[in-house]
């Protein structure tokens, strides 16, 4: 069984004459441990597909299964639980909570699940070490560079040991050096922790880090 099974998914924005179909009968399977890059021109629907897989957007036709569960038929509450337990998100603009420190941003998902800081200390130290943020743990997001903020976002996504990471143009806002650092980090996480990664990117270089590249054009997989 694949970790992600997308079957005949279509997505339309707007209604009536203004309707625009951005995904048209898309099917895609991703196995556990894969590192898949989604590429395509702007407006080709790659980010939309990513958010549909992540359950952040539920307005679609077709079916999407994550970890064997059809998320299109799940109740909001169950979907939230599944998402929090299995999926980590990384966005182009980091989306850190600005008034929390690096450490608190990273711990946020687990603390809200009711785990204590003491329980999380070992995991936190490990992920800070992996992401190279050990000396920035008390810093606030606005004191960090873009690369450091993105590494914080990655640490936040990884600390809960998700099965899947969905990354939407994670290097899109970074210079080439920081971008390379992030991609190497993805690679390490994918290999060492066997976390499946599905990334959206415009960059062939970034896509080359993945095990497979899927290209979208006009709402369909090429």
């Amino acid at each position: 069984m694949d970790l992600i099974e997308v079957t005949n998914v279509s997505k339309t924005f707007g209604k009536g004459a203004a309707a625009a179909k951005v995904l048209n009968n898309v099917s895609l399977n991703v196995a556990q441990g894969e590192f898949v890059s989604l590429m395509g021109a702007s407006g080709s629907g790659k980010s939309t597909l990513l958010y549909l897989i992540g359950g952040l957007d539920r307005d679609l036709e077709g079916s999407i299964k994550v970890c064997g569960k059809d998320i299109t038929k799940m109740k909001e509450r169950d979907l939230s639980r599944l998402r929090l337990e299995t999926t980590g998100f990384i966005f182009q603009f980091y989306n850190l909570v600005q008034n929390l420190s690096v450490e608190d941003n990273i711990l946020l998902p687990e603390l809200t699940k009711g785990r204590s800081r003491a329980e999380l200390k070992k995991d936190l130290d490990e992920i800070l070490e992996i992401t190279g943020l050990s000396d920035k743990r008390k810093s606030m997001p606005n004191e960090l560079s873009g690369g450091q903020q993105q590494r914080t976002a990655i640490a936040r996504a990884v600390i809960a040991s998700p099965q899947l990471i969905l990354a939407d143009e994670a290097t899109g806002n970074l210079d080439s050096v920081s971008g390379t650092e992030i991609m190497n980090l993805f690679l390490r996480i994918n290999r060492e922790k066997n976390i499946t990664i599905l990334q959206v990117t415009h960059s062939e270089e970034c896509a080359a880090y993945g095990t497979r590249t899927v290209r979208l054009a006009n709402g369909q997989i090429m």
């Binding site: 992540g54 952040l56 909001e76 509450r77 939230s80 639980r81 998402r83 929090l84 980590g88 998100f89 989306n95 850190l96 909570v97 946020l108 998902p109 687990e110 603390l111 809200t112 699940k113 936040r156 996504a157």
Partner: peptide, 16 residues
């Protein structure tokens, strides 16, 4: 809004 979206994507359900 953005902070809420971050929380919902990383740690909280809409209900919570």
């Amino acid at each position: 809004k953005r902070e809420c979206a971050v929380l919902m994507s990383t740690s909280l359900s809409r209900e919570k």
